[in-house]
């Protein structure tokens, strides 16, 4: 026969000692913060990925004195460079920016009418590649031969800076998650110790009747696991609408049109990254695990004072 202790059997009186109010609320609040930190982690990663893909597949070519004749003669330097670029394998398109586009680009720095200033402004060609940029040195050489002074700039430097920024933001999010887990563990440890002192007599009686440390610690751990997991589930549920709103705000930056996310419930739910959907249910599981481990070790340490 299998021994099945009745499910409601609470020999240590833990339903009152570890109450279902304070602990779940505190763990729920921690989980809310953890969900925000996780959203920060996944959000920055998605933004970085999107920008990296965009920037990694493009080049900027600057041609000074664009209207001068090219070294080979016959055509302008700009036309020679454009012809070379379009004939290069791996180049999807090469588009020389018009004066208006160039003026728009420079407007933030030079103001309106930048084109009327007596500054020699090079022609700028936006090049889209079929894949990410590989070794650009041979291309740069050929362009320089055709039109000396031509500069080829990939966006490595900016991607590098962006990567550093993203890694820092992710480190902050990770640190926040660790802190939240640490605070949750402390809250559970304090609640467990309070429970131990209020149920001291019951524990001594049960211990005297031959209960092992594992038995007593297991009763506390089961209760702490239940309360922490329930609190965390509540916290994650409360965080969900906040995350959906943030995802909707972030949609234009990760390549989704601003209008689509949130028009229907399905769109709204789809705005969250899949990774976040997978990570959210992990919060109650992790909180339960933290509750179990913390309560178990706290009770076992306390029980060592008994013979």
């Amino acid at each position: 026969m299998i021994s099945l202790r009745p499910s409601g059997f609470d020999e240590l009186g833990l339903r009152r000692a570890l109450s279902d109010r304070m602990l779940p609320v505190l763990v729920g609040a921690m989980t809310f913060l953890a969900a925000l930190a996780m959203a920060g982690w996944f959000g920055t990663a998605a933004l970085a990925r999107h920008w990296q893909q965009g920037a990694g597949a493009s080049l900027t070519v600057q041609v000074p004195q664009a209207t001068d004749p090219a070294a080979s003669g016959g055509q302008t330097r700009l036309a020679a460079v454009l012809a070379l670029l379009t004939g290069t394998p791996g180049v999807a398109s090469a588009h020389a920016l018009s004066d208006q586009e160039l003026a728009d680009l420079l407007k933030p720095w030079l103001g309106q009418g930048a084109d009327r200033l007596a500054i020699p402004i090079p022609a700028v060609i936006a090049v889209r590649l079929t894949g990410t940029a590989s070794d650009l040195a041979p291309l740069a050489h050929r362009l320089d031969d055709a039109a000396p002074g031509t500069l080829v700039e990939d966006h490595d430097r900016w991607i590098g800076r962006l990567a550093v920024l993203v890694r820092s933001l992710q480190a902050c999010a990770g640190l926040a998650l660790l802190l939240v887990a640490g605070v949750a563990a402390s809250v559970i440890a304090v609640a467990t110790r309070a429970g131990l002192s209020t149920r001291r007599e019951a524990i001594e009686i049960v211990h005297g009747l031959g209960a092992t440390d594992a038995y007593i610690a297991g009763r506390f751990a089961a209760r702490a696991t239940l309360l922490a997991a329930a609190g965390a589930a509540g916290g994650a549920l409360v965080a969900l609408p906040v995350l959906l709103a943030l995802a909707r705000l972030a949609a234009p930056f990760v390549g989704q049109p601003a209008g689509t996310a949130g028009d229907t419930l399905q769109d709204a739910l789809g705005a969250l990254p899949v990774a976040l959907w997978l990570a959210l249910p992990c919060l109650p599981v992790s909180a339960g695990a933290i509750g179990f481990a913390t309560a178990h070790s706290a009770v076992r340490r306390w029980l060592r004072r008994l013979p």
Binding site: L4, E11, G13, R16, I205, V206, L209, Y215
Partner: peptide, 25 residues
Amino acid sequence: RLLPHLSAFDNVALPLRIAGRPEGQ
């Protein structure tokens, strides 16, 4: 030294449950 929150039955059953005896017995 009875546990005040348990019934008479559960107080007496406690040593058997701690020892993991089958509930029917």
